[in-house]
Amino acid sequence: MTPSPLLPLDAEVLRVSEESSDTRTLVLRLRDSSARMDARPGQFNMVGLPGIGEAPITFSAIGGDGEFAHTIRGVGSVTRALIGVAPGGTVQVRGPYGSSWPEEELAGRDVVAVAGGNGIIPLRPLLQKMVADRRPDGSRLLVLYGGREPGQLLFRRDLDAWASAPGVEVRLTVDEVPDGWKWDGPRGVVTGLLDHPSAGHPAELALVCGPELMMRFAVRELLLRGMRPADVFVSLERRMKCGIGHCGHCQLGPNYVCADGPVFRYPQVKPYPDAML
């Protein structure tokens, strides 16, 4: 008999950390020590709890030691329940699923990563790797990240660390600064950062993730600056039930976002309706 691809595995919650008022990172390890979670940056797991359900959640960290992390914003029944699980507790995962960022195409190329809001989450394991690799070939990495307000920007410590690495530049922006917050950086939408004087290097490859409307403007700006559409990668969010190309919920034209995506070359998704791209 074919084993059901929908059967989840138990993962122990090792540590939980607060990222913002509604977002937490769960560091996990599979309870079955013979099972492995060999994920690539950009892929996702279906993460769930029995009796509540499952939600697609990307990897925010992938350790070589069997530990992996999911950073989750509580927006509905499943995600709120997941961020309520304490260390020592169990969540269930199945995956890894989907496509990943084009790691094999990064070497030697100037890369710009454009993230909005929680869109930084799937980029984090990749950026971490890229920074660790220190870009020995002299190529540059530009990270542009925008959030609604300073308290909503995730992974500030990582961003600071990346900014001090050679060949890496990090630029942050927020829409608004509530009373009591200190902010000397730029304000406004993330696409505005593309025009920052020191940001003006022409990227050869772009990685974009965030609210779909933000991605639309970001992609448009990148193309206006002469990038080839096929060098622009976007990571999409859709409703997902199965994660394995069966349930149909995530479909965008002929694409199963769960199986052919979530990371796509822009021309792969551009022609189809019911998107904001």
Binding site: L6, G53, E54, K241, C242
Partner: peptide, 8 residues
């Protein structure tokens, strides 16, 4: 048509 929902 193959689409489905998963329900607990």
């Amino acid at each position: 048509c193959y689409c489905y929902d998963l329900q607990d």
